[in-house]
């Protein structure tokens, strides 16, 4: 049985932990709303871009297609672009992401392909290094800015396209969390480079579209932009997922701390009462002995 002083110390320490988790939960809830609306605001651009891409990609196919669309002709070397958060305290979000990335890496390695990683965000580094220390090609630090935005997406895209043009990899996959709700964020993997040809909804409505400059030139400019938009979307989804996961995890932690405090308080009161009773018994016994 722990002494009264020890119990009191434990109760106080759990109480201060609860204060931290509660504060973090409220911060996450406030940030979540902002991150969610940012993710939603980015959707119209991505949708329209995908639509234009789809109609262009079907027109420019075959030999004239740029490398970013057609690929290098082989699929031997894969690059996994893993988008993790920079901060912890968000439950199993990063663990799930890393698990998904590792599963994909293992699958690709099983098929005899080469796999390397491009890590965005801090929290993926340690667990990936543990298993694939030699395969980490690059890291991108997003922790220096408060909310990663389009500028960061541009930088990442520029780096990736440079690597692709230098022939460092053949296929790039983007692994990132998709924000569904505060309770569910699914790790998702999509092919980033070469740009997958989007499914075009039906045939064109017969209208002859004029292009200025020609289709190839527009497409050549459009593809890097598409990669950038994908990365920007991933960063926004990451932000929303982080806050959502953090809110849920901290809510749980706060509740658990509350339960623990209750249990410890009961224990504390019981031992206090027991001590008083013992003392009384001793006094009475002493008085009767006289």
């Amino acid at each position: 049985m722990a002494s009264l002083k020890e119990l009191k110390g434990r109760i106080n320490s759990v109480k201060s932990t609860q204060k931290i988790t509660k504060a973090k939960q409220m911060v996450a809830a406030a940030k979540l709303r902002k991150a969610q609306s940012a993710a939603e605001a980015a959707r119209p651009y991505a949708e329209r871009l995908a639509k234009v891409m789809g109609s262009l990609a079907t027109k420019v196919s075959g030999d004239g297609a740029p490398k970013l669309l057609a690929g290098t002709g082989s699929d031997q070397r894969h690059l996994l672009v893993l988008v993790n958060t920079d901060k912890g305290l968000c439950g199993g979000l990063n663990a799930n992401l890393v698990k998904a990335a590792k599963a994909q890496a293992a699958q690709l390695l099983g098929q005899g392909k080469d796999v390397s990683f491009y890590l965005v965000g801090k929290k993926g580094r340690a667990p990936i290094r543990r298993d694939y220390a030699k395969n980490i090609a690059h890291q991108f630090d997003t922790s220096t800015v408060r909310t990663p935005g389009f500028a960061e997406a541009e930088q990442i895209a520029a780096e990736l396209i440079q690597l692709f043009e230098d022939g460092k990899f053949d296929v790039a996959h983007l692994v990132y969390p998709v924000f569904k709700s505060a309770l569910a964020q699914d790790p998702t993997s999509v092919q980033l480079i070469p740009v997958p040809t989007p499914e075009t909804a039906g045939a064109d409505n017969g209208a002859v579209v004029e292009y200025e400059p020609d289709e190839e030139a527009i497409l050549a400019e459009l593809l890097p932009r598409y990669v950038r938009t994908r990365l920007f979307g991933a960063l926004l989804e990451r932000e929303a997922s982080e806050q959502g996961a953090s809110m849920t995890a901290m809510d749980n932690a706060t509740r658990n701390a509350g339960e623990l405090i209750q249990k410890l308080t009961i224990q504390y009161n019981r031992s206090r009462q027991a001590a008083i009773t013992t003392e009384l018994v001793e006094i009475i016994a002493g008085a009767e002995a006289l």
């Binding site: 234009v52 209208a207 002859v208 579209v209 004029e210 292009y211 200025e212 400059p213 030139a217 527009i218």
Partner: peptide, 8 residues
């Protein structure tokens, strides 16, 4: 009523 057109 402009004709379908696309430009950078």
């Amino acid at each position: 009523g402009h004709a379908p057109f696309m430009s950078t």
